[in-house]
Simulated scan of single mutants.
Amino acid sequence: MTAGAKTLVEIAGATKRFGPVTAVDVLSLDIRENEFFALLGPSGCGKTTLLRMIAGFEQPDVGRILLDGRDITAVRPNRRPINMMFQSYALFPHLSVYDNIAYGLEMEGVRGAALKQRVDEALAMVRLEEFGRRRPHLLSGGQRQRVALARALIKRPRLLLLDEPLAALDKKLRGQMQLELKRLQHDTGITFLVVTHDQEEALAMADRIALLEAGKIAQLGSPRALYERPASRFVADFIGVMNFFEGRLAALAGGRAEIEVDGLGRLWAETEDLDGAAVGGPVTLAVRPERVRLSVAPAGAAGQNALSGTVVGVAYLGQDLIVHIGLPGQPAPLVARLGSGSHIADDLVEGAAVRCDWPPNDSRILLV
């Protein structure tokens, strides 16, 4: 995405209700030109309804949708310079790859050499030059997805909508296609808007993410911002894995907070802003598993954020180890992630006494 790019799509106070259910609740956001934008959230959060409103398949009860500054709220789907790739791909089984891709242009009256040139360019773009005469049932899942992408991109839309585009693929192929989608978006310069419930998918592909909760935006920002600086417990819990410690704010001064946690004593965090926090009030300290440092230490822990615990489980994931550590007074174990080649990996067995700690600047304070 180009820095300072202008707004392509503006959602202005959109609300959509289905009977007593409010699917999208007075939601406003902008999507920029040449941006890979993700709508992320759990089932029922409103992301697909919002996508369908942008496509024109649903009308907002309140609010407007603008494209290039023009109000398209009442414009029919086929009159919008927008294309959509569905999760099912919706390829015509009786047509070849070439004819599937050509179909949209043929409906617009493009014929002959102009049609062939456009289709050949689209096949090259998705690296399927040798598959033009095959039928969809002879292709792999990833190849069928590329055909659907080529068919959607060949009409050169201002905006491409993708509804759970990788859901039907296995894990390894999803990883490959994430990079492929990112490449295609960069090469074409077309704005991509993807709907997904998979936070890893959104983190890997998007320039910006809008995380939705109950029809509202819980947080909007870059993948790094949502991961490193979650604005709420919901965001911190939905994006990746997070350890939470419930406690009370014991002190707040000089950009540092002290939190009193039952059974553990005081934990520390560096914080830029805690508007609304009051000393003695409830807060949650959050820390990512990869920020937790482990050492085998039967003796008591000492120092800031240093805790003594016992290994209650270890999961081997190839290059990583996920270690679960029981801590005094905590209802859930602390989760730590470290490389499987770590010099202490062999010592991390169930029942082992360990010391865990993390720097205060790796903690995040969330208001309860």
Rank of each mutant, 00 (worst) to 15 (best):
T2D: 13
F92E: 04
L50R: 10
F238K: 01
D30G: 06
R64Y: 03
L348A: 12
P136D: 11
N361Q: 14
N78F: 13
L267Y: 04
V349M: 08
Q117C: 00
G19W: 05
S340T: 01
S88C: 05
L367K: 06
L67S: 06
S140D: 06
G4V: 02
A231M: 08
K182H: 02
T2G: 11
N83E: 10
G109Y: 13
R208K: 14
L267D: 02
T310K: 14
D68E: 14
T284L: 15
I209P: 01
P93R: 13
V9N: 00
I11C: 03
R32W: 06
E201G: 04
E246F: 12
V349S: 09
R79E: 14
A122L: 08
Y98C: 01
L51S: 06
M84A: 01
A306F: 12
L160N: 03
L123R: 06
V311E: 04
L39T: 04
S43Q: 00
L27V: 03
G19Y: 07
Y89V: 08
G326R: 13
T48K: 00
F92H: 05
E164H: 08
T2R: 15
F37K: 07
P42R: 06
L226N: 04
I101L: 05
D30R: 15
A253G: 09
A5Y: 10
R158E: 10
A38L: 06
E213R: 15
P328V: 11
A231G: 13
I209V: 08
G4K: 09
F244M: 11
G318N: 07
A214I: 02
V235S: 00
M85W: 08
Q319S: 15
A210Y: 00
E228M: 10
A231Y: 08
G326V: 11
A102M: 02
R146K: 09
V119A: 05
I365R: 02
A269I: 04
Y89I: 11
I322C: 03
L203M: 15
L267Q: 07
A152G: 14
